Simulated scan of single mutants.
Amino acid sequence: MNLGIISDQIDLDLSKALSIIKEQGYDTVELHSVFDKPVETLTKEEAVQAKEILDSYGMKVSNLATTIFFLCPLYENDEVTLFNDAFHCIKGNVQDHLNQIENACQVAKILGCYKLRMFPFRFPENRMAPFGTQKDMETICSYFKQAADIAQQFDCELVIENCPYSHCPKGEMTLKLFKMCNHPNLKLLWDPANSYRAIQKQVEDQYLHKTLREELELIYPYIGHIHIKDYHYDASLDKPFDHKPIYSGDIDFDILFDYLKEKNYPYTISLEPEVSFEDSILCLQRLKQKF
């Protein structure tokens, strides 16, 4: 398996980030924000420039962490807003996001990558939970099939991330969506911390009973990429799920990593620490010690 990190978790400047990542003994990165814009919006010239920088540091790209279908209303009257103004992402309606996929695939090809993240749509502020209902799943699936058809034209693969801000925060929910879509160019991007952090009152009861290890065992055959971050739950905080460096929070990564080692997981485990740049370096060091 490969170990990596999303580059802008180390520094917003691509060259500076790659220099530090290489110093820590890594040769694989994932790209989200490049040149202060979402990676899926790079021009051909910008993608070539990014590739030259990557090559100068001997870096491979495991996945494009695009924001396709993140800040996108699932239904016409849904209202969605950005939780963090510093998070670079595209906006618009479903067709706008579908239109962006072709460029994203072209960027991926230039960067020597074939995987692209997409989201199960941001949950709306003006509609009552639960989200990820059967109707939601069917609607999302209809759009994901269109997206996957576009990716197929470029021999690219779309990996569906379970995201706590989306209609499918649990890995078990993205698995159901994946099976409904039944498309060869779809796989899952599993983020165990996102499953842990899911807002339970927004999720139907049937998805609330598996441990992270049980969820991993269930969805493992369909995983194409993994994100790693950590949280500590503190009920006294306004936002009780507090980001921590890995192995400083609540998640037992060893039990998950042991399973991945047993299975000879063939893809990339990619850090998405969402902590300070300094603590992200600590995460690189701690992850390296485990493999």
Rank of each mutant, 00 (worst) to 15 (best):
C89P: 02
L64G: 01
Q200C: 13
D96K: 02
G112S: 00
D78P: 01
E45T: 15
S15L: 13
F277W: 06
Q153Y: 10
G112T: 03
G4W: 00
K263M: 02
C141W: 12
I150P: 00
A193Y: 06
F257N: 03
F291L: 15
Q153I: 12
D155V: 12
Q285C: 09
P120W: 08
N93K: 13
C168E: 05
M1G: 02
T67H: 09
L98G: 01
F144R: 09
E45L: 11
E272W: 00
E172Y: 09
Q206A: 13
A65F: 07
H167P: 09
V80Q: 07
L189E: 02
I150D: 05
L74M: 04
L82Y: 10
P120T: 10
K261F: 00
F131L: 04
L282I: 12
F291Y: 13
Q153R: 15
G4R: 02
F123L: 15
G224I: 00
D279M: 06
P184W: 10
Y222A: 10
I90W: 01
A65D: 11
F83R: 15
L14Q: 02
E172H: 11
I10L: 14
V61Q: 03
F131P: 03
H97V: 05
Y165A: 15
D136L: 08
N185L: 13
E79R: 14
I10Y: 02
A235H: 14
E157G: 04
